[in-house]
Amino acid sequence: MSNGETTHSLSRSDKSGRVMTYAVLLCGAVVLLIPFVFMVSSSLKTEAEVAAGSISIIPKEVQWQNYPDSLEKMRFRSALANTVVITVLSVLGQILSSSLVGFGFARFRFRGRNILFMIMLSTMMLPAQVTMIPVFVLFRTLGWIDTFWPLIIPAWLASPFFVFMFRQFFAQVPEELMEAARIDGAGNWTIYWRLMMPLCGPVIAIVAIYTFMGAWNDFLGPLIYLNSPRNRTLALALAAFNGQYGITDAQQLMAASCVTMLPCIVLFFAAQKYFVESVAMTGLKS
């Protein structure tokens, strides 16, 4: 009810509009899904069929065996546990730290704020490839190589990308709302936790999704920080299918990829309603 398309009783033009909407939605969905369908179908083909570059959607003989085979090859169990631990801790840390910093930048007046904010934004422009080695040396000095800390701790120290996003949202909240809370005797922390956080449900959902995807699929970080096979993450395990002379067992790579991305899809499906059904946002309406 809360979007631009105000709903009236179904007039004729509304009906045809709806049909149009569905048509556009369907077309787009088909285009976007083709590659995905291709992936799933490749994951069920034989090695020979995939290698020959077959483009048919239906496999000649369905090879369910590809799934258990590839999972065993990539040592799925420990890789999954490692990835889940890293991802969950990263998501929690990112939401907390970035929202705190975003709140600080949006709603407090302090000297140096604007300069600091510009500095923060500009740090995003330095390609990661260059700070990679100095940061690696730092974590090595701390003795954190082959542990999960280098992959988790940075998420607890706020990322500019998300701080900016939180700040843009906090900045939009009407000042009267905060004033009212202050008059009711709420301190900064209460305002942050009780008022601001519930208001920015959609942002939290986005930060969670983005961080989840980032941590789940991160390749370069685990590549340089993790050594022993038992510490491998899913992304590292996936890359192992890519041998020195190109991809071998592409069908197993496809199967492994499907399994790996499944949690991302499920999570998004579950979370997408928060983008548009955030109850808290209704507080802004009146």
Binding site: M39, M213, A235, F268, Q272
Partner: peptide, 10 residues
Amino acid sequence: TIYFVPSVVS
């Protein structure tokens, strides 16, 4: 979800 899926493919 369908529109989002492509951005998570490896």
